[in-house]
Write a protein that binds this DNA or RNA. Structure first.
Length: 495
RNA sequence: GUCCCCGUCGUCUAGUCUGGCCAAGGACACUGCCCUUUCACGGCAGCGACACGGGUUCAAAUCCCGUCGGGGAUGCCA
């Protein structure tokens, strides 16, 4: 699947938790961009923060990406010419580049301690200045270094940043200009010897031949730093495109794992019964649009028309109602067989269906149930409240429904009346049942709804759901009569 | 505080670059009506925005300036 257009993009998550919904959108934009241009989509794991990175998180990210259908052409599990694709395994590569930077005089060792730096920052803030490192250790002699190391100090490595403003073009945001004052000699290697994000990310983008860095806008101010590193390395930087962030609806702040829990987890939407197609469509339209009216896009259409130039500059708010609408649309869009397949795991998980293969009869019956539900599913998990009564007999009666529709005397009369007209039916087919019920309501002057709702509650326990005649047909005579008796007994105050 | 970015209906957005076709269009949500055995679906209708103030211009949502608001960053995290 590796393309030959020369376009190479990467999605580089840090494995510090589940796949965040905003990250998923970044992955999607990268993937769409690669597919649109016939390029290569690379998955790289940026785990230089050993403290927070976990193996489990890595697996979950793989799972979520695969579930969304965002297959990668190069990366862990896919292989590729630039393996390994996990930063924690690429130490030597970074060391080599840091050595070059040091040798060329483009980087230097700094012996300031974190405490000293914090003090300098505090002072800068008090004086309302940029809190940038002033380059104190920039011109240390080898003798100075020796003396400081003798004190027990361990140096960090800093990039030597030229004192001039820099302007970098962003494919979404336009030109980003940073004044020389706001730039500082960034730390690229920690005092314990481990390289930092701006270094590793830049080196890998260069090494892996990345042509376009498409990532979240929380990285915009890393862009100049990384371009500077490229220059110091004598390399041409990739092009950048920063995608505005996805905010939390309530407060308008960045959606974060810490604050918003699994609300932002792709895995949660999978569990809750959302379709990958719906999530993709939703994510695509968050911050991107094609024209002034189209909302529904197939994957192929997205690949065909996706364009970074149509990504907006403003942050957007995650609106689950729109996702729900799309999900309902895509569920309805599936044929009955596919919908049945999709819903089976949810029924099994709820214990309504055994986790074994269905017999052809049982399968046909299930499909009819699914068909009866029609377009009432917003999520696949909605199959439970919509149909659980098909699978269990001793369901509870919803108290609110009972209160509204089972006023003792009338309910008894109606349920009894319905039982009496249905009992003698010969075939109990849909037509026959319908005729009998309408005959009952018409001759007794009962409004249809006043008969149907009590009956529905008797048969399903709730006041909503598929068409009642479909339910009756699927339940069959025995269950219908049993449930009617049970309901009458219940209204009478029985158990 | 400082730096960077952004500001069209509640939300996602079209329109902004290339000023007039915009008394601002679509979608989700919401409200009402129709349909209807329920709940949904669907159909129709309604509600609803150019952050504010200056300027440029015959003409500004679109260009310029300022203010205000929001977000991000400011780390030996990514």
């Amino acid at each position: 699947m590796t393309g030959d257009s020369g376009v190479r993009v990467r999605f580089a998550p840090s494995p510090t938790g589940f796949l965040h919904i905003g990250s998923a959108r970044t992955a999607l934009f990268n993937w769409l961009f690669a597919r649109h241009h016939g390029g290569t989509f690379i998955l790289r794991i940026d785990d230089t923060d050993e403290q927070r990175s976990t193996e489990e998180s890595m697996r979950e990210i793989y799972d979520s990406l695969k579930w969304l259908g965002l297959e990668w052409d190069e990366g862990e599990t896919a292989g590729g010419p630039h393996a390994p694709y996990v930063q924690s395994q690429r130490g030597e590569i970074y060391e080599k580049h840091v050595a070059q930077l040091l040798d060329d005089g483009n980087a230097y060792r700094c012996y300031c301690t974190p405490e000293e730096l914090a003090a300098m920052r505090e002072q800068a803030r008090a004086e309302k200045r940029d809190q940038t490192y002033a380059g104190k250790c920039r011109n240390l002699t080898p003798a100075d270094c020796q003396r400081l190391e003798a004190e027990g100090r361990r140096p960090v490595v800093r990039l030597k940043v030229p004192p001039e403003p820099i302007t970098v073009e962003d494919l979404i945001l336009g030109d980003i200009r940073v004044e020389a004052d706001a730039l500082q000699d960034e730390v690229i290697v920690k005092s314990n010897g481990s390289p930092l994000y701006n270094l590793t990310s830049t080196v890998d983008d260069l090494e892996m031949g990345i042509t376009h860095v498409i990532r979240g806008a929380d990285h915009v101010n890393n862009m100049p730093k990384q371009v500077l590193i490229c220059r110091a390395l004598g390399m041409q930087p990739p092009r950048f495109a920063h995608v505005p962030l996805v905010l939390n609806s309530a407060k308008g702040e960045k959606l974060s794992k810490r604050r918003h829990g699994d609300l932002v987890s792709v895995g949660k939407y999978r569990q809750d019964g959302y379709l990958p197609r719906a999530v993709i469509n939703f994510l695509a339209r968050l911050g991107w649009s094609y024209d002034d009216k189209t909302e529904i896009f197939s994957i192929d259409e997205l690949i065909d028309i996706f364009d970074l130039g149509r990504v907006g500059k403003t942050n957007s708010v995650f609106d689950i109602q729109k996702l729900q609408w799309l999900n309902g649309h895509y569920i309805t869009d599936m044929d009955i067989a596919a919908r049945t397949n999709a819903v089976i795991p949810f029924l099994q998980q709820e214990g309504l269906l055994l986790k074994t293969n269905l017999t052809p009869d049982r399968r046909a019956w299930l499909e009819k149930i699914v068909e009866s539900v029609g377009d009432r599913l917003t999520t696949l998990a909605d199959i439970i409240p919509q149909t659980s009564f098909f699978f269990v007999d001793n369901f509870e009666y919803d108290p609110k429904a009972v209160k509204k529709w089972w006023k003792k005397d009338s309910a008894l009369e109606i349920l009894g009346g319905l039982r009496d007209v249905m009992a003698p039916l010969k075939t109990f087919n849909l037509e026959e049942v319908e005729t009998a019920i309408w005959e009952y309501t018409d001759t007794n002057g009962v409004k249809r709804v006043q008969a149907m709702q009590p009956l529905r509650i008797a048969l399903t326990g709730v006041s909503f759901g598929p068409g009642l005649f479909d339910i009756i047909a699927l339940l069959g005579r025995d269950k219908v009569m049993q449930r009617l008796d049970r309901a009458i007994c219940h209204v009478n105050g029985g158990a």
